[in-house]
């Protein structure tokens, strides 16, 4: 699972009002190179919640992203390539996602998070 998906995911448990962002507990992170597309990055930049994104990337061991950003950083190629790396090339292979409100763990195996809820959580 990439940080792109992590940034869209929130906890869906019944009664949870703010299930975003899910905390990442990383055990194994892999990197896969993909081609960079600046247009897509710029479009995603508007949609990404930056705080959650930076925290996620730190939890996965990538610390080169700035804490605070505004849209002017998109002009810098260096920033774009870091953003691209964190967004699309880092994969959480083994670990867990933790709901911020209830502490419920969603295990991640072979890169696939198990988001199935128990019956009493629906």
């Amino acid at each position: 699972m990439r940080l792109l998906t992590h940034n869209m995911l929130s906890s869906n448990i019944k009664g949870v009002t703010n299930g975003f962002p899910l905390r990442i507990e990383a055990e194994k992170v892999v990197e896969k190179t993909v081609e960079m597309n600046p247009d897509f990055l710029k479009k995603m930049f508007d949609k990404i919640q930056w705080k959650a994104f930076v925290d996620g990337s730190r939890a996965m061991g990538f610390t080169e992203l700035p804490e605070e950003v505004d849209s002017s950083v998109l002009e810098s190629d260096e920033f774009l390539s870091r953003f691209h790396h964190a967004l699309l090339e880092l994969h959480l292979e083994e670990g867990a996602l933790v709901c911020p409100e209830t502490g419920r763990r969603f295990p991640v195996n072979k890169g696939i998070p198990n988001m199935l809820l128990h019956e009493d959580e629906v």
Binding site: M1, R2, T5, N12, V34, Q49, M115, L116, L117
Partner: peptide, 22 residues
């Protein structure tokens, strides 16, 4: 799907429980 190395991200989930997305 993950053996075939598809490009997209995969989630194990039940659509009848609603999608947990922003």
């Amino acid at each position: 799907a993950s053996e075939r190395e598809v490009e997209g991200d995969l989630l194990l989930g039940d659509m009848g429980q609603g999608l947990g997305l922003r």
